[in-house]
């Protein structure tokens, strides 16, 4: 099963829509609830990162019987130092993002913790692609 969702930078009212839809699909497929939680927490953090830090993006979800592959491609400023961005507590979030309840610098480390595989490709001034794999 394949899904595609568009994400607009700055639009916090829609943040979480894709994660919510994926959660419903995984539930219907009878995937273990602790695995679903890992998937949707990782996806939600990645989705919020596009809203908070990029201009726009697309989420591709590929669900197979053995697991899920999520690709989040965004057009945005990119990440100049990925190692630094992965550190707990590092954040460049704006005041507006902090007011929405984000900007603790915990998203990327938490995605990494929940994923079986995580890769980050990023080009400064162009954008970022996150690939997350979680096995069922």
């Amino acid at each position: 099963m394949q899904f595609e969702y568009k994400v607009e930078g700055g639009d916090f009212t829609q943040a979480g829509h894709a994660s919510s839809q994926i959660k419903k699909s995984l539930k219907q497929l009878g995937v273990d609830s602790s695995v679903i939680k890992r998937v949707v927490v990782a996806l939600y953090e990645a989705e919020v990162n596009i809203v908070a830090h990029a201009y726009r993006g697309v989420i591709y979800a590929d669900i197979e019987s053995t697991g899920i592959k999520l690709t989040l491609e965004d057009e945005g400023p990119g990440i100049p130092d990925v190692e630094q961005a992965m550190r707990k507590g590092f954040s460049t979030a704006s005041h507006a993002v902090r007011e929405m309840g984000f900007g603790a610098g915990m998203g990327l480390p938490n995605i990494s913790e929940n994923a079986d595989n995580l890769s980050i490709e990023t080009v400064v001034g162009k954008g970022t692609t996150l690939r997350i794999e979680i096995k069922f």
Binding site: F12, G101, A104
Partner: peptide, 27 residues
């Protein structure tokens, strides 16, 4: 801080918060 909440491995807990927006519900 919603990212802090999202690190909790347990489920079925009560979230006590002052954050009144859509993201507290999504979280």
């Amino acid at each position: 801080l919603m990212s802090d909440v999202l690190t909790i491995k347990r489920d079925q807990f009560l979230l006590i918060t002052g954050l009144a927006n859509l993201q507290s519900i999504r979280t």
